[in-house]
Simulated assay, not measured.
Amino acid sequence: MCAIGDVHGCTRLLRGLVGFLRSHVLEASRRNTVVTIGDYVDRGPSSLAALDDVRALAIPGVEIVRLLGNHDFFLALIAGHEDVDAAFVEAWLDVGGETTFREMGLDREDVHRSGVSALRQRIRSILPEGMPAFLSSLAPHHRVGDYLFVHAGLDPAAPLAQHDVSDLVMMREPFLSGTGWAHDFTVVHGHTIRGHEALPHRIAIDTGAFRTGVLSAVHLEGDRMRWLAVTAADSLDALAPLRTTAEIPLPYEGAVILGEDQEGAR
């Protein structure tokens, strides 16, 4: 099974990585799972296309599990029927939502010009048909065997059932430190740009695609794992400044350098 890190509107990288998974990693002859870890929108160049690609993602013989990220959560609430106010919309814009807002032909003045209710209706009319419902359908977590996939994290000492959606899509500490880990699974997560980390309680896969130009995934098979990465640059040097504390040093089995016109198979 594979998990794809935070996309953040980097559609070209997503297509390249999916193309690599199709061609070189996933075997149609046996059951596989691909988990997209969330944060499909904001900060990058093409959030709406990324959302559309994630929604349409289909690989023969492969189960696709789409998780909810905190940026997707913001957009889902604003586009849905929740009672959010102008301050909530402004908070989303301040943490990266402004790029998606501009993609929809909107600006900050629109938040106050006609009110949030009218803004919601306008956003719903701009988004592709069925997209608000798709955003609302994204799963907060998914478990396969000894692994729990979640966007952000969870409390090391609290049962999974005691977490609400906002915990799972936003938590950093005490999760990242992991002191007093009481769970019987390892968490595969994004949300915090850590580079690649393989620790007893968690595996981090967010390489900050919108900042570094590198979108990463991890391939898990039994007790084996390998990192996969795709970039439009000429190397993976952009990952060097990221903190990397992998306890099991692993080479990149797939370091894909995209050509100028290459996107990979959709």
Rank of each mutant, 00 (worst) to 15 (best):
I64Q: 11
L138M: 07
L75K: 07
L127P: 12
R66W: 05
L119M: 13
R113P: 01
L51C: 01
D155T: 09
E129H: 14
E98C: 03
D94T: 04
I123L: 14
A91I: 00
L51I: 01
F149A: 02
H71N: 09
V111E: 02
R66E: 02
D146S: 12
G61I: 10
A56Y: 12
D53Y: 01
Y147M: 03
G153N: 03
L75D: 04
S125V: 00
D85Q: 06
A76G: 15
A139I: 00
F134R: 02
H71Y: 07
A56W: 07
G80E: 04
M104N: 04
E90R: 15
P132G: 10
E98S: 10
G97K: 10
V62R: 02
F149S: 04
H142E: 01
I123Q: 03
F101M: 15
R108L: 15
H71Q: 11
A133L: 12
D155G: 09
A157E: 09
L68T: 00
R102A: 13
R120M: 13
L127H: 02
E82S: 15
A157V: 01
A158S: 07
D53L: 14
G96K: 01
Q121P: 00
L68Q: 06
E109V: 08
R122L: 14
D94G: 08
S125F: 05
L135F: 14
A91Q: 10
G61W: 14
H141I: 00
G130K: 06
R143V: 03
L75C: 11
V111D: 08
V144L: 09
A58F: 13
V89H: 06
R102E: 03
L68I: 01
D146R: 15
P60T: 08
V150S: 05
